[in-house]
Each structure stands twice: as C-alpha cells, then as structure tokens.
Design a protein around this nucleic acid. Structure first.
Lengths: 221, 221
DNA sequence: AAACTATTCAACGTAATTATTGAATTGCAT
DNA sequence: ATGCAATTCAATAATTACGTTGAATAGTTT
C-alpha cells in the first residue's frame, strides 16, 4: 500500500545489515570464507583454491572487505586478505547451523530418512568411550577434512560424506560403526548411518557431535 | 581459470547456506524477522507493520519459509508465520553484531568519533549503579523502542538515536548523562555521547550494554 | 627505465531480484 | 451454492548481481 514514506533510521540500519547478509549470499564467497577462517591468503591463492578466475576472486574479496567481513594488508606485491574479527566466524557458524538444520528437514520430508527413528537412536558418549576402550568399534568422522584436522576423536577415521561410499570397502564389516559430525543438527551423521546400513553395516551415530565430546572432557586428538 | 569442472559436494552445501544468507539479504526481510521474533503474525499484519503491500509481504514471507527461516500454520482463513527455531534468532543476532561493528568502524574512519578516546571512556556498571542511587545522573537508553520496552535500566529514558536530537531540550543540563546500548560494539551509545557533548552535556557511555547489566544481576525494569 | 607479478578496474551480456498489478485460490460464512 | 476475506500466483518492468574479457595500476626485480 504505502510506498515507503520516509527512509526511517531503522530501515537504514537494516539496509546495512542486509549488505552483510548479501555478502554471505553466494556459495563461492562462503567457500572463500572457509578458506580464510584458517589463515590469511593472497588473491591468487584464494582464486586457485576456490577454482575461480583471479579477477572474479578479487571482486568477491573486495565486496566482503567493503561490508566488513574481511580486512586486507599489503605484503610486497600481493594483498593478503583475512577475516576481520571472530564475530565473523560466529556469524558463519550460525549460518551453517541454520542451513544444516534446513537440509536435514528437507531430507526428512522428501526421503523419509528419519522413518525408522528407533534404528537411528544415537550412541551415548559414555557408551562409545567404553566400546572404544574395548576396541570393538570403528569410529567415523564425517565432517569436512579441515575440521577433522583441527581435532577429532582418538582412532577416528575421517570420511566426508561424499567420499564415504568410496571408503566403504576399506571398513571391516565385522565391527560396529559409530559416525559423528558437528553437532546434534548435523545431517551428515544421519546420512552416513543410512548409507552404512544400506551396505550391511551395523551403524549408529554418536549423540551430538565433536564439540560436545570435547566439552565433556573426553579424549581428543 | 578453470570453469568449475564438477559441482562438488561442498559447493552444493554452500549453495544451500547461501540461499539462507540471501534470504537475510534484504532490509525489509530483516524488519519482518524482527517483527516475528516477538510472536507469530498473519501476512496482513506483517504487511501493515512493515509498510509493504500484502502481495509483497507474502512473497518475502514465502521466501523465508522456503529456506527454513520461517514456518507457517493455517488458522481459519489466515496463514500465521513465525520463526522456525531459536537458531534463526541466533543467526540474526550474529548478523546484527557484525553489522553494528562495521558501522562503528566506518564512522571511526570517516568522522573521527573515536579520536578523543579517553573522553569516551565508559562508566563502569558499579559506578553507574552508585550514581543512580544518589540521583545524580540521567540514564539514556538509545536502543530502539521495542528493545527498551522489553526491559531497561531503572529510571532510564528511551531516546533512539535519530530522535535524540529532538529530545535534547527536555534533558536537564546540570546533570551528567550516561548512555547505553545493546552491547560493547553498539555504535549508538558512541554517537549519542558525541551528540550530547556537542550540545554541552557532560556525557559518557556505560560499559557494554543492557544484556550485560542484566546478566550482572543489577536491577532491571 | 623496462620487464614482471599481483591485483584491480571498466565494460559487457546474462541471469536473478524486487515491487507492482490484477487475476486466481482457499477456507469460512451466509 | 454464493459471496467474502486472506493469501497466493503470474506476468511485467526496473534494478542489481555475476562472471568474463581485456586494459590499467602498483610494487618488485633486473
């Protein structure tokens, strides 16, 4: 109805915030952010890691710098970009959480993964710790490789979901498998368990995920 | 260089996440989210509160539902929308934090507000509490009105930044003024102090913001 | 100074987003 | 059934976003 009479102060603020969100609204830029979450990188470096043209990577980086997600510094001939602040990582993590939850729900409706819900009951941390001590279980970390590298359960095998199918032949069929992920909403663990069961494994998922395991004071590598 | 050979699994995930961020990348939708953070509302209700046409509001709402930020239910003839999950509010808050910090930095560079940094040293919570008991200070809440209504410091006057200038004449000039905001990065308090000083007030800002005051167990209305 | 490297700029075509309009649904009430 | 209210759909026009290309800039090396 009303055609936006005055550009209210609140609206201006929301416009600012929206600029930040827009800068996150592109898969390539999210990939770049993940790269820069580890350490600062030059444009060329980012471009090849993200499989983008240099000019395109430069555009993305400059946009994110413009809205305050990144900062840059010059080192000789190259420009190094990095995340501006831990709050940016918090923001990205919050986005991942919401996105993951959404993926999980879509799968639940479309594919019906959660039908046999009892079959997917999680293993408690305590139970897994006990079975690990007895050497009776294969532990599968289905998070992306870099998160695995930054810390994981002892004896865990890293098998990012899309590579899990290839790695199936290397898993002993006579041992139970417990898969874990980033946290309670992370859909990877559910999917991993479903896939493993399809291939005849005795598979279950760990309750919650790696951060909760670590926070509970259980051993980490 | 390489034109994106295969649509990698990681890229698909990031595409999902980017859809969520895109849905946040519009000032009207952020305004709608703030409305729905309070309680669920019908389309018509949202449209008039956000000053949008009904069809336009419907489009925004459906988009946010599609990416999982909102859910809806039917109640007779109307459709009620609400936030799907507390994680969505966390995401919005994280976005606000980054956006606020960004606004603050821009102002710092352009306007030089933070030049006389010592003059803007914050008042500690304890000091403010003491001075409030002695009745020696005017307390200014420069957050938006709805946040003020949801809880504020005792005796505080709500003066959203853009309305502060109008309210200046009503403030007693012989009393010190302490302004506070959402938190440590919130730029409103800085700007309020700068404006008050321009007009001859003895003004300072409170350390951190309202949530921290409340968390410290100090009195709240 | 010239050659080289890394990055940015400018211009272009394609695609996506936004708000508007008017028509089409959907459920409820008469 | 018919009419009514709330919402959604479909088509449109204006704006903005995206990636490519080739040229331009800034700093380093010879």
């Amino acid at each position: 109805m009303a055609p936006m009479s005055s550009p209210s102060p609140k609206f201006e603020l929301f416009t600012q915030f929206a600029e930040v969100a827009k800068a996150l609204g592109n898969p390539h830029r999210l990939a770049i952010l993940e790269l820069l979450a580890q350490h600062e990188r030059g444009v060329d470096d980012v471009a090849s890691a993200a499989r983008l043209s240099v000019a395109n990577a430069s555009q993305h980086l400059r946009l994110m710098r413009k809205v305050g997600l990144l900062v840059s510094r010059r080192n000789g001939t190259q420009i190094l970009y990095r995340m501006s602040d831990p709050a940016v990582l918090d923001l990205v993590r919050a986005l991942h959480r919401v996105g993951e939850r959404n993926v999980a729900e879509v799968r639940e409706i479309v594919g019906g993964y959660f039908r046999q819900r009892d079959a997917l009951e999680p293993v408690s941390r305590e139970e897994l710790a006990r079975r690990m001590r007895d050497g009776l279980v294969t532990v599968l970390d289905v998070r992306p490789e870099d998160e695995f590298d930054a810390g994981h359960l002892p004896q865990a095998i890293n098998a990012p979901l899309r590579e899990l199918e290839k790695q199936l032949r290397d898993l002993p069929k006579d041992r139970a498998v417990v898969a874990y992920c980033r946290g309670p909403y992370c859909v990877f663990a559910f999917e991993a368990v479903a896939l493993l069961r399809q291939h005849g494994f005795n598979a279950r998922r760990l309750e919650d995920g790696f951060p909760e395991w670590k926070a509970a004071g259980l051993p980490v590598v």
